[in-house]
Design a protein around this nucleic acid. Structure first.
Lengths: 158, 158
DNA sequence: ACTGAAAGCTTCACTCT
DNA sequence: AGAGTGAAGCTTTCAGT
């Protein structure tokens, strides 16, 4: 998605929807000086062009029995494309992995992992790391506080 | 929100809405064997009880000119409550910080930071770390690939 | 929990600038 | 092209069963 040309109105709309995707067009329009229909049209276009990639419900983990979050740094044995791609695939298919970044530095991947408890995390490490000969090393940080959790992108005039 | 009692239908609904919050109740109902109204009522309750914390639009960063993501490990000078809280506050107010976790281990905080470019990130490090006497050390990893990005929580039968 | 009516939001066609 | 208005369409909400 190579930078669609968005004016300040589009950005204002995105800013609202990043906060709460259920904000109705009429209310957004009132705040930025546009009719509801005009806002709708823009939202539609933002969705179609992929600027709005998806709209999701954020579930409170504790309310569904998921009490622990971990940040895991993973170092692979070899940085061969095949090895990396296989790991990527495994990560994409594992529901415990909320996020995975391929990064520069000593670690190759940074994972954010959500589990019900420590036992479930141990099972996770086994299937993801110990049963995988290509993982050289991993270090786990237990999350004590989720200070800020979101996917909001900074939109210049924030 | 200490674990509301959710049955498998609630979990199925959450699973759908985590994927796409615009999935209409009728379609969810058809898949799990419930009327649209019943699904609606459950969704309403899930929202009111905070199981669904929020509903947000996920913006594709590149489409708004945000081309770089970083994972930053931060080590504080002292682990005094005051110091930590001040940092938390700063993080919450900074739009470049997508996520911040307070963690065990050598680092105190793990940050996911989104910026337009390297220059903006350098400005960020200055205001967040260098101008802050309480930050002892930080290490930056540049994200080369956002393999998996989401906030979806594992719901047992996934 | 389901059905059907009412309300609300979005979408479309049309017109205007 | 993009903005506003008003009607049609769809989704959600609220009664009543």
């Amino acid at each position: 998605m190579p930078a669609a040309d968005l004016d300040y109105l589009d950005r204002a709309i995105l800013s609202k929807l990043q906060e709460d995707s259920r904000t109705i067009a009429e209310s957004i329009g009132a705040q930025i000086g546009l009719s509801a229909a005009a806002v709708q049209r823009r939202i539609k276009r933002l969705r179609e062009t992929g600027v709005i990639a998806r709209e999701v419900a954020v579930v409170e983990p504790k309310s569904v029995g998921v009490h622990m979050t971990f940040v895991v740094m993973v170092e692979m044995e070899r940085e061969r494309i095949e090895v990396l791609d296989a790991f990527r695939k495994q990560v994409l298919g594992d529901p415990a992995v909320q996020q995975c970044y391929y990064v520069t530095g000593t670690a190759d991947f940074v994972l954010v992992v959500a589990c019900r408890d420590m036992t479930e995390f141990e099972e996770f490490t086994r299937r993801m790391f110990f049963d995988n000969g290509e993982v050289r090393h991993f270090t786990t940080s237990v999350v004590m506080d989720r200070v800020k959790v979101g996917l909001s992108v900074p939109l210049h005039g924030d």
